[in-house]
């Protein structure tokens, strides 16, 4: 029972790390970026390839899994996304779906359509027991890493100069520009961070969710559910939503496997009927 809860929390944390970038682009920059999963996929492939082909240890690949998608994200933001900020949501959806298609086909072409596997280092395999509860080592590792990321992210947004500038740029772009804030640069950096986090999530998630070229589409639905249920006004909302969805998914698969993904969608619809603006609605 508690083991399942912990598995669920680990899974939820992972979802949050992947979704946080989307929550930022969507909530702060008001951009519907369905291609978010593509960045997660890049991160996953970076880890898988550097481990399997170059023999780097797992932990050493994680910074790379953050940096590469972040760089790609910044490049894409400056060249492509920046043109789409003022367009309608429908156009943004299509634009990013097009990117997803291209990313999936490109991954298939470059790396083949088979599942990528990695071998975790020994100290992350197996389980340990605390007070009679079996906890997977990797799950515990996930929870720790993701919790650190969550706290770091929250501090970055609320306590640093960068966070203050970002919030100013989002609240009123023109006024922020008038105060001498480089709005374009801030957005590019934010987008890069979000993409990097997605990549890190993708890398951490290989063990749990697998990795193949259809990954962007698979993860997209989960990430979107998290962000929609959580609401995009705060990061707390998506965080709560990620924990709920993660736990519900793991528990559902364990207790009532015949329901399958049914449970998640049902939960989402019910939550959205109850709180159409998300768990934590924007203050107006």
């Amino acid at each position: 029972m508690l083991t399942i809860l912990i598995d669920g929390i680990a899974y939820g944390m992972l979802l949050f790390v992947m979704a946080s970038g989307l929550a930022v682009t969507l909530g702060l920059m008001n951009f519907v970026n369905l291609a978010h999963g593509a960045f997660a996929m890049i991160g996953g492939y970076v880890t898988a390839l550097t481990m399997n082909r170059m023999g780097l240890p797992f932990l050493a690949t994680l910074p790379l899994a953050f940096l590469v998608p972040a760089l790609v994200g910044m490049l894409a933001e400056r060249t492509l996304y920046a043109r789409m900020y003022r367009r309608s949501h429908l156009e943004q959806v299509l634009f990013s779906i097009a990117l997803v298609f291209m990313a999936m086909a490109a991954a298939d072409w470059l790396l083949g359509s088979s599942q990528m596997l990695i071998t975790l280092p020994g100290w992350l395999q197996g389980r340990f027991e605390i007070a009679g509860i079996a906890i997977g080592r990797y799950r515990a590792f996930l929870i720790l890493v993701c919790a650190a990321l969550v706290i770091g992210l929250q501090l970055l947004l609320s306590r640093t100069r960068f966070g203050a500038r970002l919030r100013a740029a989002v609240d009123d772009q023109r006024a922020a520009r008038g105060l001498g804030i480089n709005v374009g640069g801030i957005f590019a950096l934010t987008f890069a961070t979000g993409s990097g986090l997605a990549g890190l999530g993708g890398a951490l998630g290989i063990e749990i969710m697998g990795l193949d070229p259809t990954f962007p589409l698979k993860i997209l639905v989960y990430v979107l559910i998290v962000v929609t249920i959580g609401g995009t006004a705060t990061l707390t909302g998506p965080f709560l939503a990620a924990l709920i969805i993660g736990t519900a998914d793991v528990a559902g698969k364990y207790y009532i496997p015949e329901l399958g993904a049914f449970l998640i969608y049902l939960l989402m619809i019910v939550l959205l009927i109850l709180r159409p603006q998300g768990l934590i609605a924007p203050a107006r």
């Binding site: 519907v32 929609t228 619809i269 959205l272 159409p276 603006q277």
Partner: peptide, 28 residues
Amino acid sequence: LLLLRASDLTRLMVTLGVAMLLYEAANK
């Protein structure tokens, strides 16, 4: 469900959810 006091994103997700529910139902 579409008439909820909601944003485009909520509408996208609710409609997607309905479609996925139907898919799962047909699968099961």
